[in-house]
Design a protein around this nucleic acid. Structure first.
Length: 154
DNA sequence: GCCAACGTTGGC
DNA sequence: GCCAACGTTGGC
């Protein structure tokens, strides 16, 4: 399978690219996804894939990149009663929710803001820019990936 | 802080 | 199975 690209959305007040860089081995388990469409995307993620790290809320910019270091596996938080994402209906024999592990790759020289992306013709079909999109995990085409890296000065 | 868009829940 | 009500997300 060819390398694929994704965009992961995160509220920086909750978990930022800095947090990822400071994590042990600069790696984190991307858990807590509780949307079926995003879950389905997670299921297609493979080791070595590229991840654009997008800060939502106050920042609204792609701030850097990560790479996938572990493919889809059951999200442990779905079985944790104390976790906000606890799902009592998920059967451990057939887990409903997935997670992947990602590692910090780099911070971009320039963050690429939402406005700038909207103004960029080549990004016209980006899932992120579609009206009403709230997906926290979404596919990015190879062309979109290239365009964003160029805009980022990376 | 507001609110539109969306997904989920639950009553029927 | 429908759909109103609700909670959440996230841009503005």
């Amino acid at each position: 399978m060819a390398k694929r690209y994704w965009l992961f959305k995160s509220d920086p007040d909750t978990f930022s690219l800095d947090d990822l860089e400071r994590s042990p081995k600069r790696t984190t388990c991307w858990d807590g996804v509780r949307n079926y469409q995003a879950r389905n995307s997670l299921g297609e993620v493979r080791v070595g894939d590229g991840v654009l790290f997008y800060h939502s809320q106050s920042e609204k910019a792609v701030v850097g990149a990560a790479r996938v270091v572990k493919g889809p596996h059951p999200d442990p938080t779905q079985f944790d009663r104390r976790h906000a994402g606890y799902d009592p209906d998920s059967d451990p024999a057939h887990p409903r929710w997935l997670a992947v592990d990602i590692a910090f790759d780099r911070r971009f020289p320039r963050p690429v803001g939402l406005d700038e992306m909207r103004r960029t013709k080549a990004l016209g079909n980006m899932v992120l820019l579609r009206k009403g999109t709230r997906l926290s995990v979404q596919p990015v085409s190879a062309a979109e990936w290239k365009t964003i890296l160029r805009l980022a000065g990376a």
